[in-house]
């Protein structure tokens, strides 16, 4: 297979392999919520509340959590599709917004969304959708069109059959391949995949996952892979980050987290996976109730209202992040011997 012509050359590496590709510190986004009346108190949804993590070059960070946990808002903040209220982002050593402008950030970082149809302009043929961003970034139109054809081959589509079509003439799987091709048109270093395979049928999902693994190697990519599907994250990610109500509750190497989850929420999430064996069915739900609303989240630890192990300390203080070694850390009083939780030693 031929490589994409270097219409847009890949962005060179700056800090070497040891420097994280992306370092996020204290990322915060509170959305104002319309009150119930003129004199009603102003409410805010704490969608993302002090999220910090880093991503090494060439790795895949899986992000899991239920609706309202802030995983998609985090993705949009990383892309600067929305402005953070607080927090810093450093991309390969350059502070985003100061040393690295937003336009340059978006050359280095691209995103693929869940809804393959809504992501494409319905009035543009595929060739124009693929050539749009490179043209904006100063590539002559003819070159961008040639690059579009080669990108389609890279994602396993026949350019002749697809270039002149409109999005509605293609299947969901084909459209998602096109969204991936478009994300790669700028030769980014980091691709954020926000539930990018969730809407696909299982047989097509497997094809696209195989493609993502191939492309990562071929284009030397780093992925942020957001999904509610724990099996898919286990398959594709090197590290996993578990979020709950706008906070990171646990992060670490995927094999460690899946073998020995330490946060009670992570455990509950894993316990809620469906059995695939009709003779070994689940007998009890790990958690009661729905995830609470990010407007007025619980005090202290936000999981305490559903946590089977919650103690008094959990309502009083927010847990600190405890480093468990080997890059595994958890934000739970039980893991912190100094927290004062009555069962901290037993579970820690």
């Amino acid at each position: 297979m031929t490589m994409v012509p270097h219409a847009l050359p890949p962005v060179p590496d700056v800090g070497g392999p040891a420097q994280p590709l992306l370092k996020v510190d204290g990322l915060t986004k509170h959305f104002p919520v319309r009150g119930t009346g003129f004199f009603a108190p102003k409410l805010v949804a704490r969608a993302v509340d002090g999220v910090s993590f880093s991503i090494a070059k060439g790795e895949t960070l899986g992000v899991v959590g239920e609706s309202g946990c802030g995983k998609s808002t985090t993705a949009r903040l990383l892309m600067r599709l929305i402005e953070p209220d607080a927090g810093e982002m450093v991309f390969d050593g350059e502070l985003v917004g100061e040393e690295l402008g937003i336009r340059d950030l978006r050359r280095r970082m691209q995103m693929v969304f869940q809804d393959s149809y809504a992501s494409l302009n319905p009035r543009l043929i595929i060739a124009d959708s693929l050539a749009f961003a490179p043209t904006v970034h100063g590539i002559p139109h003819a070159e961008a069109m040639a690059a579009a054809a080669e990108l389609l081959e890279q994602v396993g589509l026949d350019p002749k059959a697809v270039l002149g079509r409109y999005p509605h003439q293609l299947s969901g799987g084909q459209r998602q391949r096109i969204n991936i091709a478009r994300a790669l048109a700028l030769r980014p270093r980091l691709v954020i995949l926000d539930e990018a395979v969730s809407a696909l049928d299982k047989s097509v999902e497997a094809q696209v996952l195989n493609l993502l693994v191939d492309l990562k190697r071929r284009f030397d990519l780093t992925y942020v892979f957001i999904s509610h599907d724990l099996n898919v994250v286990h398959y594709i990610a090197d590290r996993a980050m578990v979020m709950y109500l706008g906070k990171v509750v646990e992060i670490g190497p995927v094999d460690r987290i899946y073998a020995d989850p330490r946060h009670p929420y992570t455990r509950a999430l894993f316990a809620a996976r469906l059995s695939s064996d009709p003779e070994r069915r689940s007998v009890a739900a790990a958690l009661e109730g729905d995830p609470p609303n990010p407007i007025n989240p619980p005090s202290g630890c936000r999981f305490r209202t559903r946590c089977p192990l919650a103690g008094e300390i959990c309502a009083a203080h927010e847990p600190v992040v405890t480093d468990l070694g080997e890059g595994h850390s958890v934000a739970c009083h039980l893991a912190d011997p100094a927290s004062g939780h009555s069962e901290a030693s037993r579970h820690g």
Binding site: V204, E205, A206, Q207, V213, N231, V232, H234, Y235, S276
Partner: peptide
């Protein structure tokens, strides 16, 4: 083609 825990680092058998 349904992803499960035992498949890590293997190519998926997609239809």
């Amino acid at each position: 083609s349904t992803v499960h825990a035992g498949l890590k680092h293997q190519r998926l058998d997609a239809i």
